[in-house]
Design a protein around this nucleic acid. Sequence first.
RNA 1: CGGGGCGUAGCUUAGCCCGGUAGAGCGCCUGCUUCGGGAGCAGGAGGUCGGAGGUUCAAAUCCUCUCGCCCCGACCA
Length: 488
Amino acid sequence: MSDKALTTRAADFSAWYNELVLRAELADYSPVRGCMVIRPNGYGIWERMQRALDDMFKATGHRNAYFPLFIPESFLHKEAEHVEGFAPEAAVVTHGGGKKLEEPLVVRPTSETIIYSMFAKWVQSYRDLPILMNQWANVVRWEMRTRLFLRTLEFLWQEGHTAHATHDEAEAEARQMLGVYRTFMEEWMAMPVVTGLKTPAEKFAGALRTYSCEAMMQDNKALQAGTSHNLGQNFAKAFDLKFQSESGSIEYAWNTSWGVSTRMIGGLVMTHGDDTGLRIPPRLAPIEVVIVPIWKSDEERSRLLEAAQRLKADLTGWGGRGEDRIRVHVDAREGIKPGAKYYEWELQGIPLRIELGPRDLANQACMTARRDTRVKAVLPMEGIAPAVAELLHTIQRDMLHAARERREANSVREAISYDRFRELIEGEGAFVYAGWNGDPAVEAKVKEETKATIRCIPEPEFRTPDGPARCLVTGEPAQHQVVWARAY
RNA sequence: CGGGGCGUAGCUUAGCCCGGUAGAGCGCCUGCUUCGGGAGCAGGAGGUCGGAGGUUCAAAUCCUCUCGCCCCGACCA
């Protein structure tokens, strides 16, 4: 029986994560090192993420397109910082059709180069701007060490790419999309994030500025869950992306790019998972409610299955959420006892379970069990649909609150010594809000000594109001308040 | 790529030191009884012991090489 339980988070967080991902059938290892198969349970979550984000992108004026997987190798070399960042992890195709290629092709690690080279063809006038585009795609980065969802050789993501006439417009776009990510992560994933600016050492290769969403996992390490870049004119200059302005001058365009990936599924697991398994916030759950009918005799079996289907129809037919119908599954499998089904659905993280047995039928009620709190409660059949919808809404809200409380409980906002900092980082881990003198050498030294990095210079609302005025390491006056943590 | 660990049935593994017919638990299939928190009994299927080579009368076991996975480091938008 003990082999049915997951390794606990406390015993071995890393083993817990791997077991959960495999056993909840989110993903599996592929025959190729470092690659993964995303199974229906995992892909279903990704589809929910895609739909929500895609709607948000459309609402902010973006349109989808698709650019090719293969990029001429020379393109990567046109932006100096970019090639330095990506060349080491590029997969390169040298042969095709049985012949050696004239020019090797890089499998895209990201698409700035190919996209801005195309934008250059399409833009002549300021009237052609802005271009607001997005693509859903796979990318390949030849990583040394891989983890399911968190770092694999190939992963799925979206990458938004825009071109603007002015710096300020591009800056506003980059910040707007950071806000979209934040909204998505909080309101859909129930995963609170700290948003802010990356330091030069941590920014995207080729960007002017990088903003990120940083989430805290249950081992108190940070996960960079999304990034948004103001690329300045770096790529426009490299790919000759120019336009004639209103006043007649020729100018380079200003670009942004922004992306989130299937890595967020890893973030979801490490934010909400518990020792029983996954917990999916209702808005992201492909199945929000699973109905488990309970019967003894054949006669009861047909009555209960029928009642379960009727309950499902009541729930899915309810229009109180508009087009967003309650997503319900009836577990009608035979030969498996109800208890076994409970464990299985809990492992998979279905937000709400409804148990329906002969006693409930007699009472015109059913038993609900929340996955997040594991609290059970009887609900009358009368008005069941709005009550279930309300419960799902509550679960969604409570999961965000719980995650936020956990994050703040493991954040350090008071002034501490560097020795204490090391003790914390090397011990239980934390987000440490501290002063920084702005010197990259200090950042490098801390990384070297503790493996902690500056996750971001947080936006004002995340900062400690009367934050430390002095640098954590040198004691000099601080240039910025920053968040230190170890990261994935 | 460096250090460590591990590859035996779908999963978890025993056997390996000390060579001699490959075992168990879970899962799976069939039947009966069960069914409100991981069911019981009976019967059954399933293995080129990661791969290649070597030593030997005989290799899961000893030797060499190789591939993969996990952990720690280095690296990492």
